[in-house]
Design a protein around this nucleic acid. Structure first.
Lengths: 331, 331
DNA sequence: TTGTAAGCGTTATCAG
DNA sequence: CTGATAACGCTTACAA
C-alpha cells in the first residue's frame, strides 16, 4: 500500500548537493561537474533512486509514452507487429502502452481517450478506425497519430499502407504461369481496406487477362473462415484450380480443408497463395507462397516519424515482398 | 511539437466554478452538487478535457500503470497471455505497459527499472527472472510483483505456476494406455522451471511404471527445435513410439518432420502430446492432444491479486486441463 | 558550474 | 457543497 519511492530530494541530501544538481545529472546535455555527477550517481545508486517519469513528463510536456491500439492481439501477424514496434520504441527511448480493443470502432475511441489521459506522445492504431472528432482532438492536443493498414483519408496522421493491388497482380501472374484458369479469392467479411484492396486488385488484374474470379467471403479473418471458404469454393461446379487467400490464416484453414475433406493435392490440383507471411506459413505442413508484411520496416518507419519533425511524407506505401514456397506450381 | 492539452483550470473558467470543483467531478466518491457536475461535464465535453493521469498519479501516488515484461512477444502462447492480461487490466481500470525483453536476465532488470521510473503500481513478469536486488527495490518501493511460470523462491511476489508434474503424469498414463513403451521427451535448451518440471515429472512418472524415457534437448523453444529433435529421436535404434513435447510449438515441428521426413503416421505409429494448447494445436494438420494453459484464469488471478490486499496466498498453482485430440491413440 | 525559486496539472486538507 | 491553499517530484530560467 505505502508507496515510498526515493526522490531527488533525498539523493541531494545524501550527496550534499542541491536537488537541481541531481536533476541535471539525469538530464541529457545539462552541465554538471564531474565531481558533482559522481557524488550524485553514487548517492542515487545506493538509495535506489530512479527519475520519476510521471513528474518529468508533466514538466517537459513529453511523457515518452506511445499508445498501441490493437485488437486480436493473440493473432500471429498482429503480435509480430507489436513485437517489432515495441522493440523500435524501446530503441528510441520510448515506451509502449498496449490497449486491447474489440472489433467495434467505439472501443478505439475509448482507447484514444486513455492515450490522452496518459498524455501519450503518440498513438499507433493497428485495428479499427477512430471517430474523426476524437482523432482531431488528439491531433489538436499535439499527439501524433499513426494508422497502419487502415486507409483513412483524413489529414494529419501518418498512414502506412502496403501495395496490396500490386501484390494481387503478382500472384495472378504466378497463377496464370502455373496454368491456372479457374481463379478464386477467399476473403473474410471484415471488409478492412487492405483486405478489400487485395480482393479488388486481384479481380482487376484477372480482368485484364480476360479471366474471371469467384469471390467468397465469410466470417472473421482467421483459420476457421478458411475452412468454411474451402467448403464453399471447392464444391462449386467449376472447381477453382487457384485461390488467393486474403490472409495466411485463411490460407492455412483453406489448405487443411482442401486436403483433408476434398483430398486435393497442393499445388498439383490447386495453387494457393496467402498474405502476411506469418510464421506458420513457413511450417512444413503449409509451405505457403505468400507476401511478407515488412513488419520491421513498418515499425521503423512509424517510430522514425515520431522522433523526427513532420517533414516526412505523411502517406507511406511499403512493398510486400513475395515469398516463394511450394503452394504454387513452377517458380 | 506544441502539446496543448486542455487543463482543469480552463474547464473551471468555462463552467464558472473553481478548479477543485472540476477535480471533484472526475473523482470517484467526491461530493459535488448535480448542478455543478452538469456544468463541469458540459464544459469538459465541449473543450475536450481529459484528466491528466500523469499529474493524478503523482498526487495519488498510484499511476494505474501495470508493466508487462515479456520476451518473444510474437509467440502464440505469449501473445495469448498478453491478450488475456491486458483485457483483465482494462476491466479493472488499469493500463498495461509492454516491455520487450530478450532472453538475458539483465534485460529484465532494465525493464523493471522502467517500471519504477513510470511508477507502475505493479509488474508482471512472463519471461526471465529479475536480479534479487532490483526485485527487492521494487517491493520496497511498494510496487507489486507477479511472476508467471517462473518458479522463484524469494518471498514477496505472487507466483503463479501450473501443475506441470501432474500433467506429465497424465500424459504418461495416456501413452501407456495406448500401448506405447518407447517413451521420449522433446525439450528445448531453455531450461526454464516449467519446462524442466514437465521433463522431470514425465521421467518420474515413467519410472514408477518401470519405463525409461529418452530425453533430447535442442535450441530455443520453438517449431525449429521440434524438427531437429525429431531428426535425433526418430533415428535412434529403438525408435520411440510416443513423445511428449515440452511445448506445442515443439510438437508441431516434431509432427511435421515425423510425417514428411520419416513417413510416420500419427497416432498409429507415434503418439504425440504437447503443452500450452496454442491455437495451432487445434488446426487440422496437427489436431494435437495437449494441456491447456489456463490463460484467462492466470490473468484473472494476477489482476485480482493486484487490486486486493495481499492477504491472498502468494503462491498459486493452477491446473492445466488435458485437451484430448487425435495425436494419441484411444481416448 | 551551482543553488534558489517558480511552475507543471493534479488531489487533499481545511475553512467557510 | 464549495473555494482557496498546500503539497506531489520534477525541470528550468535566473541569479550568483
Amino acid at each position: 500500500m505505502s508507496k515510498v519511492f526515493v526522490s531527488a530530494q533525498e539523493v541531494a541530501e545524501r550527496a550534499g548537493v542541491s536537488r537541481s544538481a541531481v536533476s541535471r545529472t539525469f538530464t541529457q546535455g545539462a552541465s554538471v561537474s564531474a565531481e558533482t555527477r559522481r557524488k550524485v550517481l553514487e548517492a542515487a545508486e545506493s538509495l535506489g533512486y530512479h527519475v520519476n517519469h510521471l513528474a518529468r513528463g508533466l514538466m517537459r510536456n513529453e511523457s515518452g509514452i506511445v499508445c498501441l491500439i490493437v485488437s486480436e492481439i493473440g493473432t500471429p501477424y498482429r503480435s509480430a507487429l507489436i513485437r517489432a514496434i515495441t522493440q523500435q520504441l524501446q530503441l528510441s527511448g520510448k515506451i509502449a502502452m498496449l490497449i486491447n480493443t474489440d472489433r467495434s470502432d467505439g472501443s478505439v475511441d475509448l482507447a484514444l481517450r486513455q492515450a490522452i489521459r496518459y498524455r501519450a506522445d503518440a498513438s499507433i492504431i493497428l485495428s479499427g478506425l477512430p471517430d474523426k472528432r476524437i482523432a482531431q482532438l488528439c491531433l489538436k492536443s499535439g499527439q501524433r497519430l499513426v494508422l497502419i493498414n487502415r486507409d483513412d483519408d483524413q489529414e494529419g496522421p501518418l498512414r502506412i499502407n502496403l501495395d496490396d493491388a500490386e501484390a494481387a497482380r503478382r500472384v495472378l501472374t504466378a497463377f496464370v504461369r502455373a496454368g491456372c484458369r479457374n481463379l478464386a479469392f477467399a476473403n473474410s467479411e471484415a471488409g478492412t481496406p487492405s483486405l478489400m484492396a487485395r480482393e479488388s486488385g486481384f479481380i482487376a488484374a484477372a480482368m485484364e487477362m480476360q479471366l474471371e474470379v469467384t469471390v467468397a467471403r465469410y466470417g472473421h479473418t482467421g483459420y476457421e473462415a478458411g475452412r468454411v471458404l474451402a467448403q464453399r469454393l471447392l464444391t462449386l461446379p467449376h472447381r477453382p484450380d487457384a485461390v488467393f487467400c486474403a490472409t495466411d490464416l485463411i490460407a492455412c484453414g483453406f489448405m487443411d480443408a482442401a486436403r483433408q475433406q476434398f483430398s486435393i493435392s497442393i499445388p498439383d490440383q490447386l495453387c494457393v497463395a496467402g498474405f502476411d507471411d506469418i510464421e506458420q506459413a513457413s511450417w512444413a505442413s503449409y509451405d505457403l507462397t505468400t507476401f511478407a508484411q515488412p513488419v520491421d520496416e513498418i515499425a521503423r518507419t512509424a517510430v522514425m516519424w515520431l522522433s523526427q519533425g513532420q517533414d516526412l511524407n505523411e502517406r507511406v506505401k511499403l512493398h510486400a515482398e513475395l515469398v516463394w514456397r511450394s503452394s504454387i506450381r513452377g517458380g
